[in-house]
């Protein structure tokens, strides 16, 4: 019989202790952010999808070596190049110029192997995260076009 009453006592006490804790939480400052009215700044190392980096002239730094294409685990990068003749020190040389840089973001796992394997510093991570869409085509990025749009 004594066990019965002591258990009721213990139980009521434990519930009151718990309620005391939740009650105190009422008066703590709010920690949530009212998205989409408020947003948080992404950290410097945040890995979004990749973006091409432009040189001083606004042209992509990319030299179409294809390292990112080969390093990608999911094969979501497709490169295209055109060959042009440029004059360097009076000699005519052939040079590859980037004509297509497509990223299939539906397959990308944001591992960052492409950025790491780039020896020319031509790729960076975007801070973009509002990428929701109901259409698959919205995730096939033409990075060259995006770069031109940013330059404009």
């Amino acid at each position: 019989m004594g066990g019965y009453f002591s258990e009721i006592l213990y139980g009521s006490k434990s519930l009151l202790v718990g309620m005391g804790i939740t009650f105190r939480e009422f008066f703590k400052p709010t920690v949530t952010v009212q998205y989409p009215y408020q947003t948080i700044k992404m950290s410097a190392r945040f890995r979004g999808h990749i973006e091409l980096i432009a040189d001083a002239e606004g042209k992509p730094k990319c030299v179409v070596c294809g390292m990112c294409e080969r390093a990608c685990p999911s094969g979501c990068i497709t490169l295209g190049s055109t060959s042009v003749e440029v004059e360097v020190d009076g000699k005519v040389k052939k040079k590859k110029i980037l004509s297509k840089y497509e990223l299939d973001f539906t397959k990308c796992s944001l591992c960052g192997q492409c950025v790491e394997n780039c020896n020319f510093g031509a790729l960076e991570f975007s801070k973009e995260y509002n990428l929701a869409s109901t259409r698959k085509e919205d995730f096939h990025f033409n990075l060259l076009k995006r770069l031109e749009e940013r330059n404009a």
Binding site: A44, R45, L110, G112, F125
Partner: peptide
């Protein structure tokens, strides 16, 4: 961890 690794859950 996000500030260090760049991801929140699926770290690489």
């Amino acid at each position: 961890l996000e500030a260090v690794t760049g991801a929140r859950l699926t770290y690489c």
